[in-house]
Structures are given as C-alpha cells and as structure tokens.
C-alpha cells in the first residue's frame, strides 16, 4: 500500500483581521492557552475556516505579537482565512458569543478593505499602561533618570538563556500620569509608555527593570500591565494609528 499524498486544500476566499482583548483574570492565559481556546471558539461558532494542506490540516490562523502571560490587553491581533465570504460584523458577533468572558472580540475587519501591509508589518509599536503601587513623585524621579540616558542595558531570562539588551532606544514616549489613585481607588502611579517593537522585543517589564537599574526606584509590590493599543506609528513617531482602519481612498 503506497502512502497517499494529502489532499490539497483550497486557498482562503476571505481573510479577516480580529482585534481582541484579554481582560480581568483572563490576562493569565498564555498564548498557547489562548490559541487553543480560540480554535475551539471557531468550531463552536461554526466559522467556515480554510484549512492548511498537509497530513494534519490546521485552520488558517496567524497570530501577531502576543502579549506576555499576566499582562492585560485591549489590542491583540490575529488573522483568519475563511472558506466562505462572510460579513465581518457577523463573525465578530458569533465569535464573541463563543469565547469565555474576558477574552473579548473587539473588532473584525476584512483584509481586502484594510490598509496595505501584513499584520506583523503594521504592528510597529504598542501603547502600554503600567500601573504600580509606587507614589507619583517616586515614579517621576525614576522616569526622569531613565529618560536622561541614551541606552540602558537589562538582562532577562529567555528561552535561549540569559540575554542582555538595551531597553532605552525602544522607548518612544514615557510619562507618569498625574492621577494618584488607580481605577480601584488604590494609591499608586500610572505610567504611559509607547514602545517600539524591536528584536529582541523590549517588554514593559523590561523598561521597569531598566528604570530601577539607573535610579533609586524601589521594587513595586504591585504592577499591572495593560496593552492599550498596537499599530503603525504616526509619521512623528509620537502616537499610533489604527491598524484596522480602512485603506485611504486612492488619490
């Protein structure tokens, strides 16, 4: 008996980009946890997925730059390939009903009408909210010391071992907000951080580590990281554009 070649699968007829949020306790889902949950949600929602070819066909899903386990996010992105053309708003609705609360679909957009460029290419930087229990004045002093430097090396344990890299250059904007209590009324400070996606990637916790290495900032007891937005940088590199916004009309 000869080994049969696997059946070739038809290419997707529509590609959709999904923006989703990781809220509340769901911030503890790892990327692997999320992808499993998402694939099951697609089955429950009966989304007609296109499949990859091969002996073990997989639904066509590409993920872009997942946030670290433990950090919340309002702006995670992925792309799915469908075997049928559907209204993106319908897909958003059925998917939202099939995911556990806290893993929330925010927006679904058709790639055909989106701005040009691959998803990974479009996601050039992230805006983070970093909430800590440190007083505003303490945090401001640390940030000032940090911003005065041109490069701040930090170490982090990665899958490839302990690595040292610069965490300063990727920081496009960093500011301590005036508010002295968080949304839950607890005293502390909130940092607004615009971070360019680089290789190796600099994470917001690396920036905190960097600030502590060059200032007298104490170790916070409580840190909550939330990715607020991701997207292409504005021409002045001081803000983000919406990666799902429709392509500008030609001319």
């Amino acid at each position: 008996m000869s080994r049969a070649q696997p059946e070739q699968q038809a290419p997707p007829v529509q590609r959709l980009r999904v923006r989703y949020a990781k809220r509340g306790r769901m911030r503890f889902t790892s990327h692997r946890d999320f992808s499993r949950a998402f694939e099951r949600a697609l089955v429950r929602a009966r989304v007609p997925m296109a499949y990859s070819s091969g002996f073990n066909p997989h639904p066509r899903i590409s993920y872009a730059g997942a946030s670290p386990t433990g950090s919340a996010s309002e702006a995670e992105y992925l792309e799915i390939g469908l075997a049928q053309v559907l209204d993106p708003a319908d897909v958003a609705r059925t998917l939202a009903g099939s995911l556990p609360p806290g893993l929330d679909v925010v927006e679904v957009a058709d790639v055909a009408t989106a701005r040009t460029g691959g998803l990974t290419e479009l996601l050039q930087a992230s805006r983070w909210r970093v909430e800590t229990d440190l007083p505003v004045t303490t945090a401001r002093a640390g940030v000032t010391d940090f911003l005065a430097l041109e490069s701040v090396p930090v170490e982090r344990m990665t899958k490839k071992g302990l690595r040292t890299f610069d965490c300063r250059t990727a920081v496009l904007h960093l500011e301590v907000e005036d508010a002295e209590v968080d949304a839950a009324g607890r005293p502390g400070s909130t940092l607004d951080l615009l971070l360019r996606h680089t290789v190796p990637s600099v994470r917001p916790d690396d920036v905190l580590t960097g600030i502590r290495s060059c200032s007298s900032l104490p170790l916070p007891d409580r840190v909550l990281l939330t990715r607020l937005a991701q997207g292409p940088l504005t021409p002045a590199e001081d803000g983000l554009e919406d990666p799902l916004s429709a392509a500008p009309a030609p001319g």
Binding site: R25, F28, T29, R40, T69, G70, P100
Partner: peptide, 10 residues
Amino acid sequence: KPIQYVGGEL
C-alpha cells in the same frame, strides 16, 4: 501556569 487557578472555563 497561573491560568489553572483562575477558573472562568466555558
């Protein structure tokens, strides 16, 4: 694997 302690399963 903190997710094992948070519940919220479908």
